[in-house]
Write a protein that binds this DNA or RNA. Structure first.
Lengths: 228, 228
DNA sequence: TTGTAATTGACCGACGGTCGGTCAACTTAC
DNA sequence: GTAAGTTGACCGACCGTCGGTCAATTACAA
């Protein structure tokens, strides 16, 4: 094979991107190192020049994926100003809901990420989310308590609990969300669950009922029912 | 090898038990089908007479593991009577905390189950928990609202959210719990988190603060600090 | 005795990972 | 300026192991 030398960082990112695309397309287990190197157009040995193992690649991929999203989200929320509730919404919008720009992306994302074969990837991402996202929420919750909007005892812990809830709840909601795409009349089930979740968060944050409005129900309805 | 014919169900359970022990010892990925059949003392083909695949084994294992615990817990709580709070405590005790009978068991359980390699096993168990445990909590929460102790809007959803919280939170708490065994002075961190979690649940259930008392703090302290 | 179901183990292709070695670009020295 | 030395990106044949298959064999109930 023709020998092509690239800047190492460029090569590393190339491998990361290729791996991500293949994981999304085929699933983690189904994507062999062979396949990745073939797609990139390098020898198998080169892969192991950049990563200790396939799992090491997974870790670096998760880091790389989240870093991008998180720094973006942090800056955006920092800039937008506003009270804690607005910032809270902003964070959710930027960190959690960025996949929902359009139906196609969302379906793909959920289909891919919540496939059983992709749990190594999902697990790694969750781990990194737990570590890196919760300080952002702590900040907002702290602001909220200072503003008197939130009534929370332990800020750090509440933030962690909220994140754990979110990740755990995503696990539960994923299959239901997919089922709505196939069976639009099930949307009422989804909406009921979304509302209940929002209510639960309001209670945990000690905020007045109905003020949080993380989710725009009409928007969700439109989102699922267009061309449905 | 000597040919030994057994009652199929007996053989199936034998394989399940062996697989469970090996998964605990070595991790899911590191436990090969070969290893399982060698340990049981049968040919590899026999394994595939009982299970379609290694993943099928995992599914059956998760079913088998939970069924036992759940029916036990259900009957116990049914029998014990009492108000919703007491039953709620009973459920947690029986379903979640059964692993905590002694230090050794708990350490082993957490060390094993929350290893990265065992994520497939954990994930399967969580899936089944989500499906099968939440009706038990729904029942108790319904009783609680009828008794006027709990103030919950949507019973089913609240139960699901509570379970998702619990599972997500366990994911977060596992490494911290392990660290306490190695570093007993970190227990204050753990206790703070446990209290915060309890408070969050009280808020979600709409119960008066401090009444739930799922966790006996003194008991936890003793548990971690004896022989520490 | 015959049919059914449990059991066997040789066998398969694909996998993650290794390793001895290549080679172009860069550094150093005279 | 150029030759010798050094680096590290890159190569690809190779290894042991894995999950899984299947035709043959055995045990046993009907």
């Amino acid at each position: 094979m023709a020998r092509v030398v690239k800047d190492p960082e460029e090569r590393r990112i190339e491998l990361l991107k290729t791996a991500r695309d293949l994981f999304y397309e085929l699933g983690y287990e189904q994507t062999s190192v062979q396949k990745i190197t073939e797609t990139v157009g390098i020898a198998k040995g080169t892969f192991y020049h950049y990563f200790h193992s396939k799992e090491d690649l997974l870790g670096q991929l998760a880091d790389w994926q989240t870093e991008e999203v998180l720094t973006m989200a942090e800056h955006k929320v920092e800039k937008m100003g506003g009270n804690a509730v607005e910032k809270f919404r902003g964070l959710i919008e930027n960190i959690i809901s960025w996949k929902t720009e359009n139906r196609e992306m969302m379906i793909t994302y959920i289909r891919v990420m919540f496939r059983d074969e992709n749990f190594p990837l999902r697990n790694k991402l969750n781990q990194i989310y737990r570590e890196k996202v919760y300080p952002l929420f702590s900040k907002v919750i702290r602001q909220g308590t200072e503003e008197g909007i939130f009534k929370v005892k332990d800020i750090e812990e509440s933030s962690e609990i909220f994140l754990s809830m979110l990740l755990g709840w995503a696990e539960r909601l994923a299959p239901i969300t997919l089922s709505v795409f196939e069976n639009p009349e099930r949307i009422s089930i989804l909406i009921k669950k979304v509302k209940a979740f929002e209510n639960a968060i309001e209670r945990i944050l000690g905020v007045k009922e109905g003020t949080l409005k993380i989710y725009d129900i009409d928007k969700i309805k439109k989102f699922f029912l267009e061309e449905g």
